[in-house]
C-alpha cells in the first residue's frame, strides 16, 4: 500500500507574535517553525500501518523552501520519500487553493490512503484534508484516532472521535482521505540513523506550473476569501494580573481567593 501524509509547517506553539507593517500578517523573521502536531500523529499512523502491512510512506508539504525542514524531519522519522509542492512566499493561505494543488499532485500517483491533520495550529481551517477528498472524489473521515486495514486491502475501519466521550467506528473504501487527531499513539522521534538515512531519500519538487495550474489557483486571489487585518483579541473578563516576585504573586493569589473571590 502507498500512504501519503500531508505535513504543514507552522510557527512553534510557544511563539510570541508581532504584526508586520500591513497588519495583515505576522512578522515571520523572529519565529521558529515546526511541523503541525496533528500531522506528526498522522505520520505516526502511516508508519505503523507500513510496518504492519508493508508498502511505502510519502510525505508532502506545500510551501516555500522553508518547509524543507518539515520534510526532512518526516523523512528522518521514517518516511520513504517526499514531495515538495513549492509555491512562493508565505502568509495566509486558502484551504481550498491548497487542497486543489495537493489533489493535482496526488492524482498523478497511485496512492491508497492520504493522511492529513484535523487542523493546522496557525490558520485552523480544519478543512484542507476534507476538501482534498472532494477534489480526488474519494471518501473521507475526520477526527480519526485509529486506523485498521481490513485483510482484503480494499477497505479500512477507523475510530473517530465525536463530542462528549462518544466514538464512531466506520468503514471506508480505499482510496480515501483521513484527518488525524492526536491520541495515544505518540509520534516517534527521529533516531540518529533515521537522520543519516534521510539524507539519501528522494525529495521530488513540483511547482503549480509543473502540475498545469496557474498562479491564481493557489494564491489568495484565486480563492473566495479575502484575509483582512490581524489584531490582538480584547480580554473578555477583567483579569486581575498579579505582580511581583513568585512569592508575592503566590501569596497575593491565595489572599485574593480567600478574601475577594471567597472560593478557598
Amino acid at each position: 500500500m502507498r500512504f501519503l501524509v500531508c505535513l504543514k509547517q507552522v510557527p512553534d506553539k510557544d511563539s510570541r507574535y508581532s504584526l508586520d507593517d500591513s497588519s495583515c500578517w505576522i512578522k515571520e523573521q523572529d519565529l521558529t517553525f515546526e511541523t503541525n502536531e496533528a500531522d506528526l500523529y498522522a505520520l505516526e499512523q502511516a508508519l505503523r500501518l507500513k510496518e504492519r502491512h508493508g508498502g511505502e510512506v510519502v510525505v508532502l508539504s506545500l510551501g516555500d523552501d522553508r518547509v524543507l525542514k518539515c520534510i526532512k524531519h518526516g523523512l528522518a522519522m521514517g518516511a520513504d520519500c517526499a514531495i515538495h509542492l513549492r509555491v512562493p512566499g508565505s502568509g495566509w493561505r486558502d484551504a481550498f487553493a491548497t487542497a486543489r494543488v495537493m489533489a493535482q499532485a496526488i492524482r498523478r500517483r497511485s496512492v491508497d490512503l492520504v493522511f492529513a491533520g484535523v487542523q493546522s495550529e496557525d490558520l485552523a481551517h480544519a478543512q484542507t484534508g476534507t476538501i482534498l477528498a472532494h477534489f480526488l472524489g474519494w471518501p473521507h473521515a475526520t477526527i480519526v484516532l485509529e486506523v485498521q486495514v481490513d485483510p482484503d486491502f480494499v477497505t479500512i475501519v477507523v475510530k473517530r472521535e465525536l463530542e462528549g466521550n462518544l466514538f464512531e467506528r466506520c468503514q471506508l473504501s480505499l482510496p480515501s482521505v483521513l484527518t488525524i487527531q492526536s491520541g495515544p499513539n505518540q509520534p516517534r522521534y527521529p533516531t540518529l540513523k533515521g537522520i543519516m538515512q534521510a539524507k539519501r531519500k528522494e525529495i521530488v519538487t513540483l511547482t503549480p506550473e509543473d502540475l498545469g495550474l496557474r498562479d491564481q489557483d493557489l494564491r489568495a486571489t484565486g480563492s473566495r476569501l479575502v484575509p483582512g487585518r490581524l489584531f490582538f483579541p480584547a480580554k473578555k473578563k477583567r483579569t486581575v494580573m498579579l505582580e511581583g516576585s513568585d512569592e508575592e504573586m503566590a501569596g497575593a493569589l491565595i489572599e485574593k481567593l480567600r478574601k475577594e473571590a471567597k472560593v478557598l
Partner: peptide, 20 residues
C-alpha cells in the same frame, strides 16, 4: 459583512471577507 476568526492558537484574531 466581515467575520472574525481566531488564528495562531487564539493569540490573534483575523477579519475575513467573502469574495464572489
Amino acid at each position: 459583512l466581515h467575520f472574525i476568526r481566531p488564528v495562531f492558537g487564539g493569540k490573534l484574531h483575523q477579519e475575513m471577507t467573502f469574495l464572489g
